[in-house]
Design a protein around this nucleic acid. Structure first.
Lengths: 153, 153
DNA sequence: ACAAATGTCTATTTATTCTATAGACATTAA
DNA sequence: TTAATGTCTATAGAATAAATAGACATTTGT
């Protein structure tokens, strides 16, 4: 289950995706628009910047903007920053692998073997879907709604 | 990420899958074998029973046993009991749908639209993989290990 | 050089969820 | 009738997530 933090991050990025990259957006502006606690959002944006997904400009006229085009930012890469990966069990996270407490034999653990398949399935979606796709799908849905309204009128 | 509770449940069920259904296993025995806190396991097994995955017998000679064959118990059905589903966002959980706090428009939420795909991918694995599959994969891995040992000797 | 605007960083608090434990109770078999 | 066993309710403890506070550093424009 995505944490609130991750959802906040996605919302902020969706917002920034609709903004020209030469017009930085203020943290406080983003917080207000997306209804995210300002200080909490600060920390989120900083993580995204440290991960190379965002850039920032300090001082007057500063703010945040996307480091690359929305179609070059996968949803998976975003989630990895906020949640540290999307493995259904700890022992499948590539690096920092402390293994599972409950597991006596890593190599034959049935849970891990099945969860490897699950993770693969998740990956295949998250790695191929981009921020641009997410925005596009939302826009399409809005368009569809608008058409229904037109029809009813 | 699967909770410890869910992993305990899977371990207990794997154990019971290797047991003839007419020989109930004691909670305390399961707890000892799988190294699960006894009282915690009690609650877990009870949930699984209430969900119809396990049956129990009270009194001397009693204990727990699978309600049906391992090949008829999907991993998804197990996870649903312990985690209440496997939706990556709350608003995708079929029933008890309180929606997401952060979402102003359900129908056009890009996060939900993308996460629907993710959930579908997870489903396709969890609904088609059974307890029997999980046991089998573990057994295969054990066999493979054994062969390597034989070869080395 | 200065002041205002803005992001950066560290620490702390509060809330929520997960994990674990305790003990009384109900049921069955011998 | 008694011992063995699962059932139920309540609570405590630990870990994690969410939110807040305030001092600091950097840039821009005058």
């Amino acid at each position: 289950m995505l944490s609130k933090k991750t959802k906040y991050a996605l919302k902020a990025l969706i917002n920034l995706a609709g903004q020209p990259p030469d017009e930085p957006v203020l943290i406080s502006e983003l917080a207000r628009l997306e209804q995210i606690p300002r200080k909490f959002l600060e920390a989120i944006l900083l993580s995204l910047k440290n991960a190379g997904l965002l850039q920032s400009k300090i001082g007057k006229g500063g703010g945040y903007f996307l480091a690359r085009e929305p179609r070059n930012i996968s949803i998976g890469s975003i989630i990895k920053v906020l949640e540290g990966g999307y493995a259904p069990v700890q022992c499948l996270n590539a690096s920092n692998n402390p293994g599972c407490d409950e597991c006596n034999d890593f190599s034959t653990c049935g849970i891990r073997l099945v969860m490897t398949d699950v993770m693969q399935a998740i990956s295949s979606v998250l790695e191929t879907t981009t921020l641009a796709d997410m925005v596009e799908r939302s826009d399409n849905a809005k368009q569809a709604n608008a058409n229904v309204v037109d029809f009813n009128i």
